Amino acid sequence: MTMRKPGRAAVAAVTAMAAALSLSGCLSTVDPTDGGDPCWAMAEPSSSAAKATTGATHAILIDRSGSTVAEDTADFVPDWARSLRLRVPVGSGDRYLIAPFAGERFLSWPDQALVAPPIRGTATKQNELKQAVTDCIEHSVRETALKKGVSRRTDVLGALHAAGEQLAAERGGAKDIYVATDGYASEGCARLKIGRELSDDDITRIVDGCRAELPRNLRGVPVHIVGIGTSSSKMREASPAAIASVGRLWEALCRQMTETCSVRTGGTTDDAAGPSPQAAPRTSRPERERNT
């Protein structure tokens, strides 16, 4: 078994910004540089801005299964927060529902969605607000953890089905799903062995065998998948060709669920550039994106 070099992507520092914005009527005034709330810029759940929002709803699913975590802090684990950063859109009143998943067919949704404030003012102020929302999402993704007792196995299709149910219950506005996962399901029809390279015939066989298990509640909901092929360093390392084939599989599965899909594969050792705090800097392999 090939083991990867240890490491963990560094936690990004929260950008310092002035808290006394003209939108203070719906924003917290905690200064993030003083160790305050990293989501200081988000609209308060009880505010009129949050209740009246007609922004988009973004469901963000985070793979916390056994192949993406490690007990030893010196081991590399995928940095899903960094994989998603700058890919999840920010708009006035947008709602963000962030939930971890593993091997059970449900998602532990937060009690309250994160709600972006109105994005107004000068171009500089708007950029500051968007940056603050992005920082909050990144922090929240890093803090997302499974409840005790949840299986560490992996069921990506089950998580997508649960997300479709949740989005159906959300009020109007555009809706989409972002999934950060290595793509190696250990439950259900899409079970995969890490490191295996799939042929076109393999992909066709798996897709045909999954038809009865595919979520039927995602039609019209764009699905974006990032990190395919990037597992923790305790797992067997997959070749670039094997990772590319898993990406093609998830493209094919996604096309059976909804009309708009994007699938981004990760590198064989890391899906985010930059040094880790436990190890020397290393070069990441670039991700490749396919849109259908």
Rank of each mutant, 00 (worst) to 15 (best):
residue 184 Y to L: 04
residue 157 L to W: 00
residue 139 H to T: 14
residue 156 V to N: 11
residue 159 A to S: 08
residue 179 V to E: 10
residue 172 G to C: 06
residue 170 E to M: 06
residue 167 L to G: 00
residue 176 D to Y: 04
residue 157 L to H: 01
residue 168 A to E: 01
residue 177 I to C: 06
residue 155 D to F: 07
residue 153 R to W: 12
residue 170 E to Q: 12
residue 177 I to N: 01
residue 183 G to I: 05
residue 156 V to I: 13
residue 139 H to I: 07
residue 180 A to M: 12
residue 156 V to L: 13
residue 147 K to T: 13
residue 134 T to Y: 07
residue 175 K to E: 01
residue 146 L to V: 15
residue 149 G to Q: 13
residue 137 I to P: 07
residue 142 R to E: 13
residue 153 R to Y: 12
residue 172 G to K: 12
residue 186 S to M: 06
residue 151 S to G: 08
residue 145 A to H: 14
residue 176 D to Q: 14
residue 167 L to N: 00
residue 146 L to C: 15
residue 158 G to L: 04
residue 162 A to R: 03
residue 149 G to N: 11
residue 157 L to V: 04
residue 178 Y to V: 00
residue 174 A to K: 15
residue 180 A to Q: 07
residue 144 T to K: 04
residue 178 Y to M: 11
residue 145 A to G: 13
residue 186 S to Q: 10
residue 178 Y to Q: 03
residue 138 E to A: 13
residue 163 A to D: 02
residue 145 A to I: 15
residue 137 I to C: 08
residue 176 D to M: 14
residue 174 A to N: 11
residue 158 G to Y: 01
residue 176 D to G: 13
residue 165 E to Y: 00
residue 158 G to D: 05
residue 143 E to S: 14
residue 161 H to N: 07
residue 185 A to Q: 02
residue 150 V to L: 13
residue 173 G to L: 10
residue 167 L to R: 00
residue 186 S to A: 11
residue 174 A to W: 11
residue 153 R to S: 15
residue 173 G to Q: 12
residue 153 R to L: 14
residue 141 V to L: 12
residue 140 S to I: 00
residue 180 A to L: 14
residue 149 G to K: 08
residue 156 V to P: 01
residue 177 I to Q: 03
residue 154 T to P: 02
residue 140 S to V: 03
residue 171 R to L: 08
residue 176 D to R: 13
residue 157 L to I: 07
residue 159 A to I: 08
residue 173 G to E: 08
residue 171 R to P: 06
residue 166 Q to F: 06
residue 170 E to C: 09
residue 172 G to P: 10
